[in-house]
Design a protein around this nucleic acid. Sequence first.
DNA 1: TGATCAGTAGATTAAAAAGGTCCTTTACAT
DNA 2: ATGTAAAGGACCTTTTTAATCTACTGATCA
Lengths: 150, 150
Amino acid sequence: MKLNRESEYGIRALIFLARQGRERVLMASTVAQEQDLPQGFLAKIFQKLTRHGVLRSYRGKQRGYALARPPEEIALKEVVEAIEGPDLMDRCIFWSNRCPTSTPCLLHEWYKEIKPQFDQMLSQTTLAAVVQQEASLSALRPAIEPKQAG
Amino acid sequence: MKLNRESEYGIRALIFLARQGRERVLMASTVAQEQDLPQGFLAKIFQKLTRHGVLRSYRGKQRGYALARPPEEIALKEVVEAIEGPDLMDRCIFWSNRCPTSTPCLLHEWYKEIKPQFDQMLSQTTLAAVVQQEASLSALRPAIEPKQAG
DNA sequence: TGATCAGTAGATTAAAAAGGTCCTTTACAT
DNA sequence: ATGTAAAGGACCTTTTTAATCTACTGATCA
């Protein structure tokens, strides 16, 4: 279940986009600059998100990306599955990708009990909720520390 | 929360030792051979487990390792914390080791809700339970496939 | 119509963890 | 004392993850 940095960057970028208002179209390079993310890398992430219908891309004059739907309708699960791959939930929490159902890992039986909790959390939490949570958090945090990694 | 291969090997080896009966003293190299694990690497793991009181080491003629206590009294949590470090439970499930409480990750708030489930599972599951589970599993599995990784 | 600029996509490289070995020292029963 | 494996640290190798590069596509506008 462990997520990689792409998911972190992706969520950060989506939060940023959500804050701009749903309609606002921004170039990947702009978001990268504002959020201090590697721009080529972010471009890749945006491509995945676009392919999976989380973002919408635009070409031509008013080019860039915008949220495909309002953040209240985008579940976190969608986002992370778009980035990490559709088999994310099949990965065991204990030994990420070495746990096929045919030859399950030693703790698979116990993972099965916890898994639904995860699924539910990721399905029910929307991007809007993360935005809100993030806002209340940065309100408390001292202003000295600049942009912070997860 | 993701565990590394040391934990896998460690648990496999402990299962093996538990099956031999609690008192039986076996050398690391023997266990490595029997369970098809890299022996130098396993030696390292055994050292950690010994330091944390899961195994007991013996020197002299009857040398090697044995379980320090009966498997019914060894919680999985003890084992994995011995191997992965005492901060295991502090690691976020989402972004393993980059989530200090001072600057929590974007999903930390949601992890906090799930965390107790984990703790409970690892605390309550004993080595004996894993042995039993593993036994019932291998009884079902076709005999063709030999020693299987997690 | 062709110059431009960012999105699309895959290949490639670089950096960082993880996995595993080796070698030297220590402890202990004989 | 001696021999043996445990103990522990330094080191090397492999794998995974992160990030860059290069070439291509499509929409605008001079």
